[in-house]
Computed example of a mutant assay.
Amino acid sequence: MFNVFKNLWFRNPREQDIFINDIAVRIRAGLLLFIPIYMSFTLYDAVFGTHWVVDGNTAVDTYDTDWDDNIIYAVNAIKRTYDYTVQTWVLWYALFEMIAGMFVFTSRFSPTILIASILASKQEPKWKPLVPKRFAWSLGSTFIIVCLVFFNPDVVAEWINSLFGTNLPTTFNYMPYWIPLILVWVCLGFMWMETVLGFCVGCKIHSLLVMMKVLDEPCEACGNIDWDEIRRKNEERLKREAEAAGNH
């Protein structure tokens, strides 16, 4: 437990090429999976749900019919308004979690990293380089920022207008609804594959960019070398050689 609080999910935080325990990464993805699930239901309700609130108790028969002999009722109906304060704070927390996992220092402020490291401490660690995961979490951060813009178009428009002198509308949502709707389901799928299958889509994209010579990648095979075990075996070999030389 002391090592967990000291190193979290890192093999050694002072290494030049940082490696993290992939078992803890998968556990953390499972802990954060509730966020895209919650956002997917929110977006579904906002996009496909009714935009009107009708009080059925105030329906009044007008004693009139339409051309198809359907009875016409008069009802009190108001335009439905949405308050995305809770969703905005959830998205800010998700963005914090994505950014926190990218660096050693900020990882110590993440509750999910600590919980995942504790839960994974009883299993044999599987070391993976941090760089591909950092790229994957950068993709996740981009998805979250897009959703933040969708839920707060007036605030974002005011910021952009004040900074650049533009005239973005502040009275309606200028972002098409299908953009965050697709991204939240993509994010949900990526996190599910990370949690259940251990398949990191962002890491695979990173590997593809490495193959195209766009990015560099640390040697993962080199990162799995157990240097402590090698040192122990060398010490044992030197000790045997010294004993053999003493016998002669």
Rank of each mutant, 00 (worst) to 15 (best):
Y93R: 04
H248K: 10
D55M: 03
R240E: 11
P169V: 02
L188F: 09
K239F: 02
I99N: 11
I18E: 08
F10E: 06
A74G: 10
P125M: 10
E124K: 13
M175F: 01
K79C: 04
W192T: 10
W89P: 02
D226K: 01
E194V: 01
W185N: 13
K204V: 05
K133S: 13
M1R: 13
E124Q: 15
V53Y: 01
G165D: 00
M212W: 12
C187T: 12
R14Q: 13
N247A: 14
T171Y: 05
I37T: 06
G30F: 02
V54L: 07
V75E: 04
Y44T: 11
A221W: 13
D55F: 09
M212T: 03
M1A: 14
M193A: 08
E236Q: 09
V156G: 05
F41R: 07
N152R: 02
A120N: 04
D68R: 14
I225Q: 07
M211G: 12
I99Y: 11
V146I: 13
D45F: 07
A74V: 08
A46G: 01
I27Q: 06
R232C: 04
W178G: 06
Y82C: 00
N3W: 14
G49H: 01
Q16S: 13
F5H: 12
V47C: 02
S107P: 15
W89G: 04
Y82L: 05
D216M: 08
P153M: 00
A136Y: 03
V53P: 02
G198V: 00
A100E: 09
H51G: 06
G198A: 01
V86G: 05
Q87E: 10
L33D: 00
L119G: 07
L238Y: 10
K79Y: 09
F34P: 01
N167I: 02
H248E: 11
V146K: 02
V4P: 07
F199R: 09
D154N: 07
S110Y: 05
W89E: 01
F105R: 15
V54G: 03
N70A: 09
N161I: 02
R237N: 11
T106K: 14
K128P: 03
I179K: 09
N57R: 13
K6R: 14
Y93Q: 09
A242E: 08
A116C: 06
E236Y: 00
F109V: 11
F135W: 08
W9D: 12
A94D: 05
L168F: 08
I78K: 14
Y63E: 10
A116W: 05
W185G: 08
N167L: 03
C219F: 13
K6T: 14
G246M: 14
A242L: 10
L168N: 02
N3S: 12
T171H: 06
D68Y: 15
W192I: 14
L43T: 02
N247Y: 10
G101C: 12
V86W: 08
